[in-house]
Computed example of a mutant assay.
Amino acid sequence: MSKFDFAPMPDAAGFFGEYGGQIIPPELKKIMDDINDAYEEIRQTPGFQNELAQLFADYVGRPSPIFHASRLSEQLGGAQIYLKREDLNHTGAHKINHCLGEALLAKHMGKTKVIAETGAGQHGVALATACALVGIPCEIHMGQVDIEKEHPNVTKMKILGCKLVPVTRGTATLKDAVDSAFEEYLKDPVNYIYAIGSVVGPHPFPKMVRDFQSIIGTEARQQFQEKHNQLPDYITACVGGGSNAMGMFTAFLEDKDVNIVGVEPSGKGLETDEHSATLTLGKPGEIHGMKCYVLETENGEPMPVHSIASGLDYPGVGPQHSYLKDLGRVQYESVTDEECLNAFMTLSRVEGIIPALESAHAVAWAIRVAPTLEKDQKILVNLSGRGDKDADYVADKLGL
């Protein structure tokens, strides 16, 4: 099969092309370099690899299966749709994959507290779970808007023993939660570790989170070849910060015959200000310690953004996604709130699978595109999370 060739992603300084790096105060550079050194040291050891592999199998329930959505595919006509079932993982989403890795790293480094932000609450629940497992205190910062919207996950975090910090500044959503959590981290970066919830932030976090999440694509590639003796024609995943997408995409990047599509939220429409389509309408800029595509106001500040999915309303995006967009290796599309809700209800009622609103963006793209393709073509969707957290919100919104 024909292959793409890439420069190292990232390079030694943490850059993916011109994106990434460490745009941080000088006193934090040594801290970040220490984290990178510890990660590079620990990831090579059989002890760490075996412990993580055992937890993936016996705690998370990996490998997650691939399901042929045959009724949905038949209803749509055209390509066959398959789902990588990350929604079946312990805690209900892909987030547990990197949270276990980060918690084990924190334990290895002797950190006394793990701090993080969360949007939809999936990263918060997964990190609180991982910290309970390894016995490290956990503090999660969450926007007040998202706290009210994602009540089931808030309750789970409290049950798991983490300290939940409501964030009321700004838009009281994900970007503000990141700002708040980073300020707490700066109070004692030697003893605390900031467990970033996506492939964003200063080096080494985009690399680390991608590496821990890459098990998704590694499994999917092997599973698909064993079942179909071929690779999918298309793979797709939703993109906010972009961790589930990088987890799926990484194993397929060199395969020219595989079309890769990231799906962003166009919210109430690309023609409005109420969207989070960073790669579609943003431009290169700086946010949260990295260079990436950013949605900015005329004053150069991060733009207030919107998505019906709390985990996707972020004005930046992972630097590797930014690089892959510029290279043309990954195509980035967008889906509206309305299309997302339609996909959420369609998958629920046709296949009996309630997806997270985040994941429903990728499902919506597959629903849009499948009828335009041939019946022997195959679309693999990363179903990154389940919709338990969103069920009450959607029911209220639709009057169910």
Score class of each variant (00 low, 15 high):
350 V>Y: 13
278 T>C: 11
21 G>N: 05
134 V>H: 05
57 A>V: 14
396 D>L: 03
203 H>R: 01
357 L>T: 12
309 A>K: 00
151 H>F: 14
48 F>Q: 03
53 A>H: 05
172 A>S: 12
355 P>V: 05
375 K>L: 00
33 D>K: 13
28 L>C: 02
43 R>F: 03
187 K>Y: 14
152 P>S: 05
53 A>C: 06
138 C>L: 03
156 K>L: 13
347 L>T: 04
261 V>I: 13
204 P>G: 06
54 Q>W: 15
212 F>G: 06
326 D>W: 02
393 Y>F: 15
97 N>W: 06
154 V>I: 15
287 I>W: 05
92 G>I: 11
373 L>F: 01
182 F>M: 11
80 Q>D: 00
91 T>D: 01
98 H>K: 09
120 A>R: 01
36 N>E: 12
76 L>Q: 03
70 S>T: 03
20 G>I: 02
395 A>V: 11
378 K>I: 03
351 E>C: 08
79 A>W: 10
1 M>H: 13
341 L>S: 03
160 L>Q: 04
288 H>P: 01
98 H>S: 13
87 D>Q: 06
98 H>R: 04
174 L>T: 04
35 I>R: 08
107 K>H: 06
319 P>W: 02
394 V>P: 03
12 A>Q: 14
124 G>K: 05
352 G>P: 02
32 M>Q: 12
272 T>R: 01
146 D>K: 09
87 D>W: 09
161 G>C: 04
217 G>D: 02
257 D>N: 15
176 D>N: 10
176 D>F: 00
333 E>N: 07
24 I>E: 05
389 K>Q: 09
233 D>A: 07
9 M>V: 02
194 Y>H: 03
289 G>T: 07
138 C>N: 06
154 V>E: 09
142 M>G: 03
38 A>W: 01
196 I>T: 00
200 V>Q: 10
85 R>Q: 09
62 R>Q: 04
321 H>C: 08
354 I>E: 02
90 H>A: 13
35 I>Y: 08
9 M>E: 13
340 C>M: 07
356 A>M: 06
164 L>N: 11
39 Y>P: 08
37 D>K: 14
318 G>H: 08
177 A>R: 10
5 D>L: 15
261 V>A: 10
364 A>V: 11
239 V>L: 00
45 T>L: 12
196 I>Q: 00
177 A>C: 09
36 N>A: 15
78 G>Q: 11
18 E>R: 13
378 K>P: 07
288 H>Q: 09
324 L>C: 00
34 D>F: 12
297 T>N: 04
240 G>D: 06
170 G>E: 05
31 I>W: 14
336 T>Y: 04
233 D>L: 10
279 L>H: 01
194 Y>T: 03
374 E>F: 14
302 P>T: 04
12 A>F: 05
119 G>T: 07
260 I>W: 04
62 R>W: 02
385 G>W: 12
137 P>Q: 06
266 S>R: 00
222 Q>V: 14
191 N>H: 15
40 E>T: 14
372 T>S: 15
213 Q>N: 12
177 A>H: 11
20 G>H: 00
345 M>C: 13
